[in-house]
Structure formats: structure tokens, C-alpha cells
Amino acid sequence: MTALFAVAAKEIRDGLRNRWVVAIALIFAFLAIGLAWFGPAVSGTVGFAPLATTIVSLSSLAVFLIPLIALMLGYDTVVGEDESGTLTLLLTYPISRLQLLGGKFLGHAAILALSTVLGFGAAGLLIAALTQQLDSAALWREFGFFILTATLLGWVFAAMACLISVSVTEKAKAAGLALVVWFGAVIVFDLALLGLLVATRGAVGELGRVVLPYLLLLNPADVFRVANLVGFAPARSYAGLANVVAADTLSPAVLVAVLAGWAALTFALAAWRFQRRNI
């Protein structure tokens, strides 16, 4: 256990030192404040939009950004150490491969959680203060849910990064694979699903209505979208594809559990592949 935490602590320290944490938190904060400020300008008004509307536009941006950040944070975590020769060394220490990968994942998860909470939290406080909504408990619950799901989304892709990193032997390949995964999750999957709907228009019928929400669960990015867009009343008109999912089909708790399950499953797969990696 000590070894696991030593690895996690080093990852966190690296994250603080190379300013990943600060950079991610700042990006999130600026994004939130910028969206709150510029959001209403589109419709002709100037000033801060209420937090609820901001969350909706924020989540449609976060769904692109968070996976990318999580993948960039961790794609080289194992393959990078392999290239520099420290992986061989670490594996001669009294630490199992599971502990090593677990420590790295734990460290990345902490970095993502820390910067998400700091960045979005600070921005949320600021926006709420400027729009005089600081005392709305319901609003904080929604914002808290957003931060929770954003963190979980980050964890899913941190686990993906682990999986990529243990599966390749060159850093460059890991970077390429990370981009492919990102592109597939945030763009291609939705397009393919949309194409499926269009191509089978009319033919899908009642079955499609039932199946589609569950198809969305196959993509963690969409789970995050669904969780944050469908949950909010003002979001219905923005939600696009995710709107097809009736809000009562999947409760927020189920969606959170699905995201957590995605992270756990992906990490388990990464750990399994790491065990089989040749040193």
C-alpha cells in the first residue's frame, strides 16, 4: 500500500510541478466565466447568464475538453517510463504491476478532481455571486452534480490513457492512439449514431426509441452529456441527440454509476493488459 501511495504522490507532485493542475484549473475557470459572460451576448444582452444556463453550455464544451486533457495527462504514463528505462527498474522494486498502475491512475484521478473542483468551483462561486444566486441550494446541487460528473468523465479517460499506455511500446503511438480514442468518443460515435437514425428513419420505430438511450451508454462522453443536458429543464432545447433520451429513462444516479463503472472497467482492462506486457 505504501508503494501505491508513493507512486500516486509522485504523480500528483509531478502534476503540480509541471503546472498541469494550475493549467487545467485555469482553463476550466476561464471557460466557465467566459461562457457565462458571452453566452447572453449572443442573444443580445450583456452581463452574466445564470449558473444553470452556464452549466449547460459548459458541459457541451467540457465533453470535448475533459477527455482530451485526461488523455494528454496520462497517455505516456507507462510507455514513457518504459522508453526512459525506469519501468524495468520500478518492476524490480517490491511493487506489483497493479500497485504501480493503480498509483499512477490514483495520482491522475486526484489531479483531475483537484483541478475540476478548483477551476469550476471558483468560477461557479464567482458567477453565482455576480448574479446574486449564492443562496440557491437547488442550483448548487446541480452545479455539484456537474462537477461530480465532469470529474468522473475525467477519470474514465484517465483510465483510457492507462489502457493506451500499457498497450503500446512507443510514446508516439500512444499519442496517436489517444487522439483516435478522443476523436471517436466525442465526435465519431455521435455521428455514427446519428447516421444510423437517419438511415433507418421510420424503420427504427418503437424499438429504436427504447434502444437508443442504452446505445448512448456505450460512450462515456455521451453518458456525461445525457447526465448534464437532460437533467436540466432549460437544457432540453440544447441537448440535441441526447434529448432523444427521455429524462426518466435514466436517472442521474444511474448515469453516475455508469460513468464510475466505465472508469472501473477500463482501469481493470488496463491492469489486465499491463500484467501481460513484456518487459
Binding site: S84, G85, T86, T88
Partner: peptide
Amino acid sequence: LRRRIGYLPEAVAFYDD
């Protein structure tokens, strides 16, 4: 056993930062 062995790999690059 690993607590009782020391190993120096060839051309290892430690954590530069």
C-alpha cells in the same frame, strides 16, 4: 527477494524534472 536486491539498468534516464 526484491527488498534484498539492488539493480542498475543500462542507460537508465531518471526523472529529469
